[in-house]
Amino acid sequence: MNKLLKILYNCRKATFMIEKRMVKPLTFQENIELRLHLVTCGVCRLYIKQSQKIDLMVKQILKNTPPANIRLDDDFKKELKVRINNELNKS
């Protein structure tokens, strides 16, 4: 397989460079390889959009107030209260 074909076919490497590019500039060579790849690869072009969207969503979730439907179980809470009270009485 010649070098150009290798670049055009290698979605594994392309997605790797896509992830990197979202954070920092690629090297000159990486940049050219990725651009070449994307010209012909619609699947990886779609991957870019979805990957960016996922990053946004994950950030939103982590920055937002955690979901209220997740609760610590009551028995553990009772034990925690006892523990805290014991510690407070010690001092």
Binding site: T65, P66, P67, A68, I70, R71, K77
Partner: peptide, 15 residues
């Protein structure tokens, strides 16, 4: 603390 923050902190952690 437990009543006021335990669920919040737990949810924060589990994500």
């Amino acid at each position: 603390w437990v009543n006021a923050h335990a669920d919040y902190l737990y949810a924060y952690t589990i994500t």
